[in-house]
Nucleic acid binder design. Structure first.
Length: 945
RNA sequence: GCCGAGGUGGUGGAACUGGUAGACACGCAGGACUUAAAAUCCUGUGAGCUUUUAAACUCGUACGGGUUCGAUUCCCGUCCUCGGUACCA
């Protein structure tokens, strides 16, 4: 084959690799292991677009590179195949999601195979496969059978908790548990029935049932994601959506909050990602404070304040508990705000306020949490009519409700300190509540809040004259002494809801008996998703699984919700280690060898979802002795998104005939901008005939106002999506330019971690590059040019420069600049007319991770019979980079203060002359403190002090 | 709103620790080869301006300030774009 034909070459080598199982990986103790993982995709119906493979190409290059460096590389691929879109499609068409998912995966695999990845496909996993989700369910059961012991700081089997209760009851037990868990003695424990004991244990287990708020659409009878809700109505149908409490399975991720923070020190992730996770967990140190409720007097008013400094809760014992990070500002409290969902709201509302409170609550129910947080400009709230007592000052504090307080964070109640918090200040100003200065350093609290911790306290009772630290300590000590509060660490992180009211997910291996949840027998795993007739909720609003006939466990009802999307993806990297094991989720031998992921690559959009949940599960599995490492992803890279480049046509408004005007002339008319399929646009020039033929919404005889006989389209960069007609399919690109060119171009587009637009035009450059590589081996007539002679100095220099650069670039994930280096190298070798075997051999090896097919082919042209994948990455030899410069010391006052570098071909005399001519520089150095010298090989450029 | 990232020619981007801004590539223009096209090769290409030429000068890294002999790079402020914001995966 002497004519370059990417189709033949790529087809041939993909076949050879498949037949020889070139990329099959086995445990091999003679080599160091290296585990490269991509975040596995959700197989959507639209197939892959050119944005998806970006990360896969990067990891593929890295894997191939590591292999050339002598590592045993695990590089698998699989599918996160449970999800909403397949279910949505099923609702619309009645097609079983398993079938559409299967089809989509088939498409994905064929698309991926065309790009020439070195995946070991024998290890493929699918989260929707019962052989896989058997183990997802198994992990769920392990979590259910565990509790978190804060003393040993790890999860333990629930039996150890029973043992502790038997010995000392709840005293001395430090557990992550539900807030309402009760206390009891060992004797009381013994007296409980088995059922009662079990019921108590439910408050401690790492998965538990809890009430949480969801978007519920009564018209659709469905729970919706925030995604599916737009402006308070459902995206589909536009029906109203309300916030509704629902009992759901929840995972106690908060037990791991501190370890999720400290574990970040063990991994090599970007600071910004670590920052995002830390902020998401949101550890804050503060205090819990109870505000006694001032009881209603018989005439409907409230009591006057009790004597100041009373502290103790009053006779009724009712109180509101708040969490605050600024207990030091407590003397500045001028109101109390509850979340509208707070459980005390109903009982606190006085008859006069009932109507306004109820109106406010119904308004709030229409707004999602995101709306409530985003919109800080609109201050809203309602007064309950009741008051509580500031335990320190004894002052009467009015109780309000407002939707800027969220039920899910802290206690769902906030003490309002308008002088120290801007949102409180806005609230107080809006409703005419007092603003009290509490620190002498607070400035200008008439116009805005000042959150300073500087200065000394004023108007602040027992802490007047103190500073922040002592004041906080004194207040907390007093609270703890009186038993009305305590210092507390709080987290923004909430326990993770582990249920979806949907069909297409893992069934939860739980049944209910006498209202209590029980696990099914492990022998009965997997609990396989049952067939149902329709994928909609039942008439009485139960999840779709409620439709399944005979869906019960030995006569007991199964849990009807399924697991969330993040379940299957929270442990999948272990499954790849031993993907076909039906005895364990992975064998001990495999886990011991592969340990954890050395390089993990995926989008930054997973920062606070998947990447937190999966770390949680990994830590849990480690605590229970199933896996060895505290963290599973040692190095993480976030690839950027590839955006689409949309094209537009401009349609005249108010015109009898359908008329489109070219981009350059559109400003002379009133036009409407319309998306046009980028696949019928070349270089921004519209193929008018194809446009006419493919659009049926433009009439029979559309008119075009052209410029220079062409219709020029406008363009914009947007997210790639079908609806924007800007999707580019990798298959088309691979067919036309080849996988090697495609791989090189994806890398050449820009830095891996940044988002960048796809522009098919630019691919010509890398296509030319690949053909230039071919031209180093064959001339235009297909004559083999390769000679086996000694390479010249220049040739070695060009090669080794590139070896060095490419090596450094791959290690630092700068794939874009290494492609540039290859281009420069090949240009230089072409200019030198270099066709020498020893140079070309090494060039092929370093290029092979990027362009595996063409290099494999040319490797054979050089007379080899083995695969290029079995080679060693060549070592860079510095001696070939001819010294361009040498050092020349600059003396100032007889002392060497600096050295300048000069081109090697300059004579001593010339340098003397230059230095003299640059007397200024030297003199300037004299008066300065030399810090650093910039070395520029070509010429003296600059001196830095 | 909050958290995180980013903004450099017509376009994608390069520039190592603060030291010649625009590497490499696309596009465009001109040329060679060709009956022609494709392919290939060569030259030019940030803006402005002076000059017959050679060449030089001024401006220029979102905007406004600051630090520095020197800023795309560091600091403060503003604007814009993207990701996340807990049931998309």
């Amino acid at each position: 084959m002497s004519e370059f034909n990417h189709r033949e070459i790529e087809k041939k080598w993909q076949q050879v690799w498949e037949e020889n199982q070139t990329y099959k990986v086995e445990i091999d103790h003679t080599k160091p292991k290296f585990y490269v993982l991509d975040m596995f995709p959700y197989p959507s119906g639209a197939g892959l677009h050119v944005g998806h493979p970006l990360g896969y190409i990067a990891t593929d290059i890295y894997s191939r590179y590591k292999r050339l460096k002598g590592f045993n590389v695990l590089h698998p691929m699989g599918f996160d195949s449970f999800g909403l879109p397949a279910e949505q499609y099923a609702i619309q068409t009645g097609q079983h999601p398993a079938i559409t998912t299967e089809n989509n995966i088939t498409t994905y695999i064929s698309q991926l195979k065309k790009i020439g990845f070195c995946y070991d496909w024998s290890r493929e996993v699918r989260t929707s496969d019962p052989n896989y989700y058997k183990w997802t369910q198994w992990i769920f059961m392990e979590l259910f059978n565990s509790w978190y012991n804060k003393e040993s700081d790890k999860a333990e089997a629930i039996e150890t908790l029973y043992a502790k209760f038997e010995q000392n009851g709840t005293s001395g037990v430090k557990a992550a548990c539900n807030d309402d868990a009760q206390s009891f003695t060992a004797e009381e424990w013994e007296a409980f029935s088995e059922t009662e004991k079990y019921k108590i244990s439910l408050d401690y287990r790492l998965t538990y049932l809890s009430d949480s708020v969801v978007n519920f659409c009564p018209a659709l009878g469905m729970v919706l994601s925030n995604d599916e809700v737009k402006d308070g109505v459902s995206e589909r149908g536009g029906y109203p959506v309300i916030q509704k409490k629902m009992q759901q399975w929840v995972m106690r991720i908060t037990a791991y909050a501190d370890r999720l923070i400290s574990g970040l020190d063990l991994v090599d992730w970007s600071d910004s990602l670590k920052e995002q996770q830390k902020n998401w967990i949101g550890r804050s140190v503060g205090a819990m404070v109870k505000f006694a409720i001032s009881p209603l007097t018989p005439d409907g008013g409230t009591n006057t304040a009790p004597p100041s400094g009373a502290g103790a809760t009053d006779a009724s014992g009712a109180f509101i508990e708040v969490f605050t990070t600024r207990v030091d500002t407590i003397y500045g409290v001028s109101f109390m705000v509850l979340a509208p969902e707070h459980e005390l709201v109903a009982s606190l509302t006085t008859p006069e306020q009932k109507e306004s409170i109820e109106n406010y609550i119904s308004e709030t129910q229409k707004r999602s949490e995101l709306d409530r947080m985003s919109d800080v400009r609109t201050v809203s709230g309602a007064f309950t009519g009741s008051y509580c007592i500031n335990p320190f000052s004894g002052e009467k504090v009015p109780i309000w409700i407002a939707d800027y307080v969220l039920a899910g964070y802290g206690t769902g109640a906030v003490m309002g300190v308008p002088s120290g918090d801007q949102r409180d200040w806005n609230f107080a100003t809006h409703f005419g509540l007092p603003i009290v200065q509490i620190l002498d350093a607070q400035a200008d609290i008439e116009t805005q809040a000042d959150a300073t911790k500087e200065g000394k306290y004023i108007n602040s009772g027992m802490i007047n004259g103190l500073e922040y630290k002592e004041a906080t300590a004194k207040l907390i000590a007093w609270l703890e002494e009186k038993g009305i509060g305590k210092g507390k660490v709080n987290y923004r992180l909430r326990d993770a809801v582990f249920a979806r009211q949907r069909y297409w997910g893992e069934p939860v291996p739980v049944f209910f008996k006498d209202g209590l949840p029980y696990l099914i027998d492990k022998e009965d795993l997997p609990l396989v998703l049952p067939e149902i007739d329709k994928y909609l909720p039942t008439e009485d609003g139960e999840p779709p699984l409620g439709r399944a006939e005979g869906w019960n466990y030995k006569g007991n009802e199964y849990e009807l919700s399924t697991m969330p999307g993040w379940a299957g993806s929270s442990w999948y990297w272990f499954r790849y280690m031993d993907a076909n094991n039906d005895q364990e989720f992975a064998s001990k031998e495999a886990i011991d060898y592969w340990q954890n992921v050395d390089l993990y690559l995926g989008g930054t959009e997973h920062a606070t979802g998947h990447l937190l949940y999966s770390r949680f599960w990994n830590k849990f599995l480690k605590d229970r002795g199933h896996v060895p490492q505290e963290e599973y992803a040692m190095k993480l890279i976030n690839q950027g998104m590839i955006m689409g480049r949309s094209n537009f046509v401009y349609r005249l408004k108010d015109s009898d005939k359908v008329t489109f005007v070219s981009y350059g002339l559109k400003d002379q008319y009133e036009t409407t901008k319309l998306h046009v399929d980028v696949n019928i646009v070349d270089n921004d020039i519209l193929d008018v005939e194809k446009f006419k033929a493919t659009r049926n919404d433009i009439g029979d005889d559309p008119q075009f106002i052209l410029e220079d006989g062409k219709y020029v389209c406008g363009s914009e960069v947007e997210k790639m999506s079908k609806s924007k007609f800007n999707v580019v399919n990798p298959d088309t690109i691979v067919e036309r330019y080849g996988a090697d060119t495609f791989r090189l171009y994806e890398m050449f587009l820009g830095p891996l971690t940044e988002s960048k637009p796809w522009d098919t035009r630019g691919i010509e450059g890398t296509y030319r590059f690949v053909r230039k590589v071919w031209r180093l081996f064959f001339d235009q007539n297909g004559k083999n040019l390769v000679v086996d002679t000694e390479p010249s100095k220049e040739e070695l220099k060009a090669l080794h420069k590139t070896i060095k650069k490419v090596n450094e670039d791959i290690e630092s994930f700068s794939f874009n600049t290494s492609v540039s280096s290859f281009m420069i190298c090949v240009n230089e070798l072409s200019d030198l007319k270099c066709h020498k075997k020893s140079i070309l051999e090494q060039l092929l090896v370093i290029l092979s991770p990027y362009a595996p097919h063409v290099t494999e082919e040319l490797w054979q042209v050089l007379g080899h019979t083995d695969s290029i994948t079995a080679q060693q990455f060549p070592t860079f030899d510095a001696k070939h980079l001819v010294e361009d410069s040498f050092e020349y010391p600059i003396q100032v006052n007889g002392k060497v203060r600096a050295t300048l570098n000069f081109p090697a071909d300059m004579s001593k005399e010339e340098i003397e002359k230059l230095v003299l001519e640059n007397e200024l520089v030297v003199k300037w150095l004299e008066g300065a403190k030399p810090k650093k010298i910039i070395v520029v090989p070509k010429r003296i450029v600059n001196v830095v002090i």
